[in-house]
Design a protein around this nucleic acid. Structure first.
Lengths: 193, 193
DNA sequence: GTCTATAGGCAGATAGAC
DNA sequence: GTCTATCTGCCTATAGAC
């Protein structure tokens, strides 16, 4: 018995991390199971001992982003530690690093149109990520309609980044990102009495 | 010579309309050239007399949305004709019909994450659509920073719809759509200074 | 638990008949 | 201009050795 008790779990997590990165940067259909496994240091044959099929892997990979183990380089937790968390999230969301990071960016940004076309399991995982974002934003919003305002800020974050990534001209992308960022900041500060 | 002078152009437009619909609802990778051609009443062999390859078809199909021939059932041009055009656009964008219409919806909503992964030609077409939307919004915005406000409203439109389409729970989707819609209306009405 | 080998299917692109 | 036929390659998923 050459395998430690945690070996399978560790292997599973390596596969998930590999899948998360590849799906983020290349999309669901363009990534093969062989590619995911090779990137995790394995061969494609062993895949089905860990996941039922590719759809299950996709849902789990989206959810995997929420785990602490998933790297988020654009977060820079040391900086601006004094700001409210909602502000730090919006700052990170609209940062150039996040815009530019196809591999580790938030799946809300990298996968929206893919998710609409696959099964309910993946949508449920996408929803978990979105609800996490909304909850974090709402926790720092004071005054009435905090839920509605948190939802709007989340929509602005997703839309600003998604639109900026889709256009060809980098200066238009920056303009979009900055306009949405300033609007989001205004909405965070607003205190409708 | 059994073909009329406009025959090739008409065939090309049939292919574009078929491609636009299929890409919108199923995504770029999931649609085969044979499917596009069959849907246009042709066979796959003739495709390459009209387009260099699948990527060129993709870019042209995105741009095809801007043509008047492309159907937009959720627009309902008769209703609310008295409102400013920017308002009518935002109304149409956040309508349930547009949310629900995977086939004829705005490509900004249906294709964002696909577009980030393909060539510059498709991004240029995506940018054309976005700039058209921003220009239409800006034309009806008074006061300073109309450009920046138009960009923010566009981001909110895209983000609100995209996020709503990605989640599993229909009531959360509706909540997202309505929150973003109300915020967009506020921004349209705002007259800073 | 992971490997190699393979079954079975479908994709994009081209060739040549009409 | 459009057709049928085909080349070439990669995909998901399974079988069976170790």
């Amino acid at each position: 018995m050459p395998y430690s008790p945690t070996h399978k779990l560790q292997t599973r997590q390596r596969i998930l991390e590999s899948a998360r990165r590849l799906f983020n940067s290349k999309g669901f259909d363009a990534v093969s199971i062989g590619e995911v496994m090779e990137n995790a240091g394995l061969t494609h044959g062993g895949f089905y001992r860990h996941f039922k099929d590719k759809d299950e892997l996709y849902a789990e990979a989206v959810r995997w982003f929420l785990c602490d183990e998933a790297p988020k380089p654009w977060r820079r937790p040391g900086r601006n530690a004094h700001k409210p968390r909602a502000q730090r999230i919006v700052d990170a969301y609209f940062s150039f690093d996040h815009f530019d990071d196809n591999e580790s960016c938030c799946p809300l940004v990298s996968l929206p149109s893919d998710v609409t076309r696959v099964g309910e399991g993946v949508k449920a995982a996408y929803q978990d990520v979105l609800e996490k974002l909304v909850a974090l934003l709402q926790a720092d919003l004071e005054g009435p309609q905090s839920r509605e305002r948190a939802l709007s800020v989340a929509a602005l974050c997703v839309g600003g980044l998604v639109a900026a990534r889709g256009v060809a001209d980098p200066s238009l992308a920056k303009e979009l990102r900055q306009a949405a960022y300033r609007q989001a900041q205004t909405m965070l500060k607003a205190r409708p009495c």
